[in-house]
Design a protein around this nucleic acid. Structure first.
Lengths: 334, 334
DNA sequence: CTGTTAGCGCATTCAG
DNA sequence: CTGAATGCGCTAACAG
């Protein structure tokens, strides 16, 4: 039984209301009584019940967060950024993983709604829009992270995936590769589509001598990259360079190449995406573009908290533009 | 305004109590009325208020979790494991990072207590025992993960760090190294101490010809390993092998070695710890021991949920025994 | 300046 | 089988 404000009031010999006012600094009241109350609260180790406050105020001072998988480096950093901002603002953070399974995401949303989170940060499952629709229909403020639908009404914090992938791909092509492959992420995801588009644009710009091949729908994981690489390397014409959808995939490519006795970058040039912490220590160090995951999380949380604070401005569309980071995996000068 | 049970009752034309019973399947009641209620609930998209339930029941169906840093690979996996088990049981998960700062941890605990979490999973800040004392004094059930104090009353899920580090160190010594270094983690942490002990035991067992050197207090991060390596490599006698406190530190060692033109493992053999996902793809692939972080999280959450379910058995002390994973960084046969 | 009253949404008494 | 009343802890509205 946690101690309640009633206990504090009794201990201090005042009414519950007075205790409440002393504790929350509402109206002015006798300095002496205030002290007695604060003293009693300290002595009894009083902490106000969030549940009761939520019940009466309708606000929980808790944010919800749904990500694909908090253990994946990019999401891990995003969660970190969100948590830091949330806690600084005195908010709790309820974390859920969807594994990009919509029904799971909806379960999570139901829990979050029951717990009356004040807002939600979400990397939507993009097999369909049900998660986002749920949030909208429930009138829960939300901010999209990493992925988004075209609806401009949504607040969102993303990176320019098209430009990022284009830059990385073009870099590879300028090194002279004429047979390039691309492992594209799930094409339901806006990020997966955009990165493929960027690759394709670079290929088009490369002119007629460039021949490109790609596989789609590979998960943003080591395994996804591995499978994608197997597919690309099994084609009739082996690519001399591969653009992976992200760094984890690139690791999968390295694994596949290693198994086939191909040396990266000599036999197979490679670029990834995201610039995870260990990218520079991989074998070989990975050429990639930098996705500022921590900042994305922080910015998203700030936007959400602003909304909860009454921010009525038009939708926030924050787009970071990643820098290309050249390392050894792409071949060419480092 | 979310819809309440009152709305459902009105819609169904029954009393609140009846609605409650229909929704919670308490006592038997007219099948027809039950249907009307369920139908109304569905139609109104009713979700019971967790805040109200918490207020009346005293239980929130939420777990709290405090880790050093959810973005660090081991913690990320632990969080993942906890979240999976928690959600399967219908529990929410409130996540906090302490950055191993006790005052921050205590802030988090205050929040968690206010939100009346039913239990807490924690990797304690071990600068002192205030976080654990707080939990105990607040009568909040808790399970320690990764780290522990000697108090056998605490439930805990850890690995045998001493044995793990001993095995890794001995492996290195058996390769013939006579000048070995160890980068030890913060010695306030039980894991940091145990890993150093394991190293020292291996050195003792190595006999008189083995000369060992070590630095303590290096953070379990790339930077910590880097600094530690600088220190060890700047000594009068350069070690030919280094035992890092974990894989991230080992990465830092690789970085330092690279900067100094030392080749791993030829000029400097290296072992880490934890077996993070990318350990095998590093340059060079890292010899390490496997810490089953996901399983640790899962097991911890299961124990905690059992406690909440009334498990009164003696304290659970789960200790996983890590396997050594030999890769190229240690030199020797792979 | 202070205390009394009422109500947030739900679950658990009690009566009927 | 059903409903009305009560209280969880806190805050807001209303007296005094």
């Amino acid at each position: 039984m946690p101690t309640t404000i009633k206990d504090v009031a009794r201990e201090a010999g005042v009414s519950v209301t007075t205790a409440h006012r002393a504790l929350n600094g509402k109206s002015e009241l006798g300095a002496e009584k205030r002290e007695r109350v604060l003293e009693a609260a300290r002595k009894l180790n009083y902490v106000p019940s969030a549940a009761a406050r939520t019940l009466v105020s309708g606000r929980s001072r808790t944010l919800g967060m749904i990500v694909t998988n908090n253990a994946s480096p990019v999401y891990a950093d995003i969660v970190r950024g969100v948590e830091a901002v949330a806690r600084d603002a005195g908010y709790g953070l309820l974390l859920c993983n969807s594994d990009d399974d919509q029904s799971r995401a909806l379960e999570c949303l139901e829990i979050l709604r029951a717990k009356q989170v004040d807002g939600v940060l979400i990397t939507p499952v993009q097999s369909d829009r049900r998660d986002i629709d749920y949030l909208r229909n429930s009138h829960i403020p939300y901010v999209l992270l990493l992925r988004h639908f075209d609806d401009p009404a949504d607040d969102r914090v993303i990176i320019d995936n098209e430009a990022a992938a284009h830059g990385a791909s073009r870099y590879l092509l300028e090194l002279g590769h004429q047979q390039v492959g691309c492992i594209a992420g799930p094409q339901e995801t806006s990020s997966g589509r955009a990165r493929l588009s960027g690759f394709q644009r670079a290929v088009r710009e490369g002119g007629d001598r460039v021949r490109a091949d790609f596989v789609t729908g590979q998960a943003f994981t080591v395994e996804g990259g591995y499978q994608g690489a197997i597919a690309l390397l099994s084609g009739d014409v082996r690519p001399t360079a591969i653009v992976a959808a992200n760094d984890l995939q690139a690791v999968g490519v390295i694994k596949a190449a290693r198994e086939r006795g191909l040396k990266v970058p000599d036999d197979l040039a490679l670029v990834g995406g995201d610039n995870i912490e260990l990218a520079e220590f991989l074998d070989p160090p990975l050429t990639t573009f930098h996705q500022p995951a921590l900042a994305i999380g922080r910015r998203g949380a700030e936007i959400l908290l602003d909304r909860l604070d009454g921010d009525e401005r038009p939708p926030h569309h924050v787009t970071f533009v990643p820098d290309l980071i050249v390392r050894a995996s792409s071949g060419g000068p480092v």
